[in-house]
Write a protein that binds this DNA or RNA. Structure first.
Lengths: 247, 247
DNA sequence: ATGGAGCACTTGTCTGAACAAGTTGGCCTC
DNA sequence: GAGGCCAACTTGTTCAGACAAGTGCTCCAT
């Protein structure tokens, strides 16, 4: 925790969690917070902007800020790593590679991973569990330049993200996620221990490095009785977008 | 479009859309943008922060900003209003109230809408369509103080949000959305014209005013072949959070 | 009572400056 | 050629000040 504005954001987050400020109540004015923490108003504004983006507080010109929600999952790399997310919640993540295969890129692979025609990429089918229960089936395609590193990871490695970071220094920094629902196929059903055609929450995502280079793309299917997603939106800030199926 | 930083954000958004800056390429340095638009570096930083939050560009200390994605739905009130979203995409939204009923609040209603025990609230079942096709089934509970206004809206009003704004000045400002998947019930199937048990994308949401006062909560079920959701995440900014089903 | 004007308060916008910290590429040495 | 060091560049953090704009309250006149 280096930056002062992060410390202040954290202090405010904890104060809200402690119910020093209850849901519906008003936060102190910026000037008061600035005086309390011994910083300028700009630094306080950076801190409260973080909480606003998290959906914890609401802000409008002229009126004091209002507390909108009480708690926040508050982990950082939440979506980038299943294992890190599980650990942050005090659950144990497991993983197992069910199938692995090299294939020549399809048109879709090429578009999503920005690769040349004819490139060979690694397809991995991985089943992931939470406290022993299977909850997620990942079908991932890795870009050629990272595939050999992925290939040599042991089949039951709980955190591929952590492993790639340790082995190659790779940091997964950005992701685009498209969320919908599908019926479980026979294979899905067998591996996730649900009935065939039962509804699954599907997330298709592309993950890139800090430099913006695509690393992997994946079709993830969650048991909806085990995992959900949540998003806060506000009038000036909608991270979540609705899309039609075409285009 | 009042604020200078919004104008600059918009100019950059259009430049990216126009492919003046292609995906994977680098944005000019802040100082250069500041000089080009005749503003201080702080104002440029505000503009690029917007695009970063939208997932259009990636940013890291020391390196130039990189363009991550080409286009952005860029409408404002997207998630708050089905009709406004549809219009922004050049589609026509329809709506029809299928059932409407006053009930005494349940414990869940009270918790979500912050109401007193014994309060009467309005339950509405609304079917919504896009270009004539049914795509969404909304089961909404409105807080008592807005229910009478909702009750008097005609059954086939395409935009309830717009109507409430016109009639009562109500602005829906904040929302929390929890996303999962469910199997279509017999009723769902009939109204949405899908087979029973076919997968639906469910969004449960609570919407509040600018003051943080809950207005409505809703169980929305989308045909996943018609509507999807998309989210951008980045290392410092995860609007989307994964949740376990319990708690 | 009711409505409007005015005022204090609070957040939003913007500036210009300075320093910290991370990245990148070139140069130099071995 | 390989490796390491350095310098230029770029983004991140913070400050102090000023003004704009929206909110909510009081008070006054009707």
């Amino acid at each position: 925790m280096a930056a002062r504005h992060e410390e202040i954001a954290d202090a405010l987050r904890r104060a809200i969690d402690r119910e020093d400020y209850t849901v519906g109540s008003l936060l102190p004015p910026e000037t008061e917070l600035a005086a309390r923490y011994g910083v300028s108003r700009g630094t306080v504004r950076q801190a409260v902007a973080t909480l606003t983006a998290e959906g914890l507080i609401g802000s409008r010109q002229g009126a004091r800020r209002v507390v909108l929600a009480g708690r926040r999952s508050q982990s950082f790399a939440e979506l980038r790593s299943f294992a890190q997310w599980a650990r942050a919640m005090g659950r144990e993540a497991t993983g197992r590679v069910m199938a692995q295969e090299w294939r020549t890129v399809t048109a879709e692979d090429r578009a999503r991973l920005q690769l040349d025609p004819g490139t060979r990429v690694l397809h991995v089918l991985r089943l992931r569990g939470l406290d022993g229960q299977p909850v997620l089936l990942e079908r991932t395609v890795y870009a050629d330049w990272i595939s050999t590193a992925v290939e040599h990871i042991e089949a039951d490695c709980p955190s591929v993200t952590q492993r790639l970071l340790d082995d190659t220094g790779l940091v997964l920094a950005y992701g685009e996620h498209v969320i919908d629902a599908v019926a479980a196929s026979a294979r899905d059903a067998e591996l996730l221990a649900v009935r065939r055609t039962s509804p699954l929450l599907r997330v298709r995502r592309v993950t890139t490095t800090r430099e913006g280079r695509p690393v992997e793309w994946s079709d993830d299917r969650y048991r909806p009785d085990a995992v959900r997603f949540s998003v806060h939106t506000s009038i000036g800030n909608n991270a979540l977008a609705r899309m039609t199926a075409d285009q």
